[in-house]
Amino acid sequence: MLKLSRYVLHDIVRSKVILAYTLFLLTISVTLFQMEDNPSKALMSLLNIVLIVVPLVSMVFATIHYYNSYEFIELMLSQPVSRTRILMSEYLGTAASLSASFLVGVGVPVLLFNLDEVGLALITTGTALTFIFTSLAFYASVLARDKARGIGVALMLWFYFALIYDGLVLTILFAFSDYPLEQLTLALSSLNPVDLGRIFLMLKMDVSALMGYTGATYKDFFGSSFGALYSLGILLLWATIPLWLAVRSFNKKDL
């Protein structure tokens, strides 16, 4: 499996797209840190990039990569290697290369300019989001037969998590505004990895004071070590469940 993953990784690195992505992240991070005299403010801006760009690139790149290596997958299938193994190697190769470029592009500048709890949380969240959205992309591509539809589904999913979901949350919060909603908002935030990552990070920053009463409920929850474990656990579930579904349907699929 590792050998296969290494081939995948090699293939991806050669394609230069990943290099461009790394450079893009690196440029943005370094520029932000140099533009703002206060590193924690730069981190705030970086948070937005991480929450929007990382999922988008992970999804689109993973989908395109899956379809581009379709022939390679077919070739591998003719060898005595199990299907689970093939898909897992593809996944690990893609996710590893994407998170490597995230770690170089964002992780290194953060470590250099603002190494503290918030910085580390940002790196963790970004890496987790890379793994999560790669796994969602794999599930989408396994389900959709042709490339155009696959990319369409991936984009729709990104759109849903980045934007539509928050709109729905807003609607729900207004529709039930007469009820105590603190627990519900906690639950709602777990249903979207982007939101979960954002709240998890924001509670580590001092803007959390703006959140008033709601923020206090969050802080009690996410601030505790149980809360940190909980959010990491949920993020892990978000990465493993779509992947498991993808493997399951890949195994049954008539290729």
Partner: peptide
């Protein structure tokens, strides 16, 4: 006030 959970989101 509950909508503060969307603070700094893209939306």
């Amino acid at each position: 006030p509950n909508t503060l959970m969307l603070l700094r989101s893209f939306m």
